[in-house]
Amino acid sequence: MKVTVKSWTGVALWKWIANDDNCGICRMAFEACCPDCSFAGDDCPLVWGHCSHVFHMHCICKWLNSQLNQQLCPMCRQTWRFNDR
């Protein structure tokens, strides 16, 4: 039997590699976007802290910007420092 492929459609699945399933701030899945965005993925990226906690970038920035004195990780209260991986 000879099969001729007339067309094909590629399907890919992507997932963030993070040590948790959802953002501790908005509680949305990391693969979903933060509540202020409409598109997940590079448009609504994740960021890592030195303390190893992960959040949607928009969520953690919103929190840090609302803090006047010190900027602490919402999960462990250590001083928040971005980890550039």
Binding site: G24, I25, P74, M75, R77
Partner: peptide, 10 residues
């Protein structure tokens, strides 16, 4: 935690 020590993870 209801005021000064509130975090959005709570």
């Amino acid at each position: 935690i209801l005021t000064d020590d509130w975090t959005p993870a709570l």
